[in-house]
Design a protein around this nucleic acid. Structure first.
Length: 702
DNA sequence: GAAGAGAGCGCC
DNA sequence: AAAGGGCGCTCTCTTC
């Protein structure tokens, strides 16, 4: 499919093309010849010339960018957002800016090329250049990676994403909670918030980044128009000189930003984190998005049908027996419970709360309550974006957007649909490709271990290393109440025998890492504040080193202005001065959650590379678990490899830990939790039972 | 009619 | 005075 057309006069006339008319293959390339202007590459000879120049010059790094369009209309998310299926990307141009350093910072040479990606005969040169052992820099490189993969080309050997770096620098600075505590009148508050929002949106863009670093972007005013011109570009249409210049410009500025960002990275001690974890994860993350997950459409439609049939019956019953037309309406529930004199049961300070938790607790007060709960759950499930046909690609796979550094702790987030937050009941709708199976490996209690390691608490480390951290904890904490035998049994056995004691420890631990107060703990454990206070005090006594380290983390972090992780990844405060309660909490939590995210990414990067030997891929990165897909016959081996890499990588970062992982390949025909592949069926059955009881008791009453 | 706040659900 | 870290997303109700 050689698309080389007769280019329009405009392109032919452009100086760029004129300077590229003749080549002496194999001869030494003239620096000045290429450095003169942007070179448009449209023949294999020109591509060869470009590649040879790149191989001959002592390059320091390369800026690159792609222009593309989508072959499929996108899904409108809201007024300003459209989601395109990555698979439908159609690469048009790739621009390259080869940088050759000179005597000092200001003296460098920049060779600028723009390659027509519609011509497959030119791809070899792209492949050759991007595999050079020099960093290739792009702003939001995910799109460039998609273009490369669409053409069947490998990713660059070394990648630097100028967008991701800017995001690292801004981590935590614009958290929405900072907007809320401003003292000003309402209209002003709204304005301030809007401005902050705009700033954040614009702030990480290439143009804004250039402005911050004092880099001139030649075409900043025309960016939007030209970007759109590619989205609407027709197949056989030649590119305008302006389009080509624009493509070249983005690669150029990315290459100029790189050394400036490196300088900044050194100042923020982020360089190591970038080079060992974050920039490699750009590729891993993009690959996960590119792979997507396969959906069993029949299973999905069946699920929708069954849930909605149930919902109809439940709703009907709720309206006719109890007069609740809409159980999602706070007002209607208030009226209903008021009518039955039960409203006070749901009081929470000066408001009323009909939360799931609250309703569950008060379940026996009225026969309508279980129905309300069931209706809520059913409609929540049915309104999952995940069930919408909009997001299914042409190959039957869903590709949610995976946002790198979506959370201020450095964690990933996902959206459209939010796969990471998918209700576990719906997980089995995710199925493997033909001939493949799905496996999952997760770290056991990893955050407790990391907390022990980053805060250097020997007691916590030792409990983590014993196998089941919460069982060991309970054995020490309740040592006076337990029998001699119970003090020595294995964690696993203890877990089943003394579930409630162990759960108390779990709540205390998580509460400690999240900065829970005695009243919060009391609510969690269903006890009084006084008891919770005593419990918490006694609990903390088990970990004196930790207690001290937590205090230091929040106090020093507040002064320093950021919380740190094992690799130097930072979360910054949005302001200075005395820290508020919430800030104290995350200053303590970030080193744990953030370090866990770092280890997770480092592990994922290794897995991605090792998986290529097995025709395996990560399909879901779940904070402390990897869900992968591979050929059925490799499943066991890949699971073992995954388990090993997970343990080893964690130990590399925290040599004091002896981590354990849980492997789940028992039901490889779908994604599931602990091998439970039929949660949906069981839930529906339990609903039906509930309905039968309800209906028969009503019949009796009549 | 659009947009935002608040409540509430789900996930780790 | 309130007091659980990090998210995405939907629904209701109010406001402009």
């Amino acid at each position: 499919m050689n698309l080389l057309p007769i280019w329009s006069d405009r392109v032919a006339k452009s100086k760029a093309v004129e300077t590229c008319t003749s080549f002496n293959l194999g001869l030494r390339k003239s620096r000045n010849y290429y450095a003169a202007d942007c070179n448009f590459v449209e023949t294999p000879e020109q591509a060869q010339g470009m590649l040879e120049l790149a191989q001959q010059r002592p390059l320091s790094h390369i800026g690159f960018d792609t222009e593309f369009r989508y072959g499929r209309p996108g899904i409108r998310i809201d007024k300003s957002k459209i989601r395109f299926d990555p698979l439908s990307i159609e690469p048009l141009l790739m621009s390259l800016a080869l940088v050759e350093p000179g005597r000092d910072d200001r003296d460098f040479r920049l060779y600028s090329f723009v390659v027509d990606l519609r011509n497959p005969d030119l791809w070899f040169a792209i492949k050759g250049i991007l595999s050079l052992p020099v960093p290739c820099c792009a702003h939001f490189a995910k799109n460039e990676l998609f273009c490369l993969w669409k053409l069947g080309l490998p990713e660059p050997r070394m990648l630097w994403d100028t967008f991701i770096f800017e995001k690292l620098l801004s981590l935590g600075r614009h958290h929405h909670k900072y907007n809320l505590s401003r003292e000003s009148d309402d209209s002003e508050l709204v304005k301030v918030k809007e401005q902050a929002e705009e700033k954040r949106e614009f702030g990480l863009s290439l143009v804004a980044t250039c402005q911050r670093y004092g880099v001139a972007h030649g075409m900043e005013g025309e960016k939007k128009r030209l970007q759109d011109s590619f989205l609407a570009h027709h197949d056989d249409m030649p590119f305008s000189a302006e389009q080509i210049r624009y493509a070249a410009e983005d690669a150029k500025v990315a290459s100029i930003l790189y050394p400036l960002q490196i300088q900044k990275a050194v100042e923020h001690s982020l360089l190591r984190h970038c080079e060992t974890v974050e920039m490699d994860w750009v590729v891993t993350n993009a690959r996960i998005e590119w792979e997507g997950v396969r959906i069993d459409l029949k299973k999905r439609d069946d699920a929708i049908h069954r849930i909605s049939t149930n919902l109809k019956v439940l709703k009907h019953h709720l309206v006719h027996q109890h007069g609740i037309a809409n159980s999602q309406s706070h007002k209607q529930l208030r009226d209903f419970f008021s009518r039955h004199g039960l409203l006070e049961q749901f009081r929470n300070a000066d408001k009323f709360s009909f939360s799931r938790e609250n309703l569950k607790e008060k379940q026996s007060l009225h026969p309508a309550i279980p129905l309300i709960r069931a209706v809520r759950r059913s409609s929540d499930l049915l309104s999952e974006k995940f069930l919408s046909p909009d997001f299914i690609g042409i190959d039957g796979r869903i590709r949610p957007e995976h946002k790198q550094l979506g959370a201020d702790t450095g964690r990933q987030t996902s959206c459209w649909p939010n796969l990471l937050g998918l209700d576990r009941i719906l997980r089995p709708l995710v199925v493997p490709a033909e001939g493949c199976g799905i496996g999952e490996v997760d770290w056991s209690q990893v955050e407790a271990g990391i907390a022990g390691a980053v805060y250097e608490d020997e007691a916590l480390i030792q409990m983590f290393n014993s196998g089941d951290v919460y069982s060991s904890m309970a054995q020490l904490f309740f040592k006076d109440e337990l029998s001699a035998e119970d003090l020595t049994i294995e964690g696993k056995e203890f877990k089943t025998k003394h579930k409630s004691l162990r759960n108390q420890m779990k709540t205390c631990t998580l509460g400690m890492l999240y900065g829970m107060t005695p009243s919060g703990l009391a609510r969690q454990l269903g006890t009084t504040k006084a008891k919770a206070t005593r419990l918490q005090k006694r609990f903390m006594k088990m970990f004196p080193q930790l207690q001290n380290a937590l205090l230091e983390a929040s106090q020093f972090g507040a002064i320093r202005g950021y919380a740190n992780t094992i690799s130097g990844l930072k979360r910054y405060r949005g302001r200075s001065g005395k820290s508020i309660h919430w800030e104290k909490n995350w200053l303590i939590n970030h080193p744990v959650q953030g370090s866990a995210a770092v280890v997770f990414k480092a592990t994922g990067n290794r897995l991605r590379k090792l998986y290529t030997q097995y025709d395996a891929r990560i399909i879901i990165p779940l904070h402390d678990a990897f869900i992968f897909e591979t050929r059925v016959e490799c499943l066991k081996e890949v699971a073992e490899l995954t388990a090993q890499v997970m343990c080893h990588t964690l130990q590399e970062y925290f040599p004091v830990l002896r981590p354990l992982v849980e492997v789940n390949i028992t039901r490889s025909d779908c994604w599931n939790k602990d091998g439970n592949a039929d949660e949906l069926e069981r839930w529906i059955t339990s609903l039906n039972e509930l309905m039968e009881v309800r209906l028969s008791s009503d019949a009796e009453a009549e």
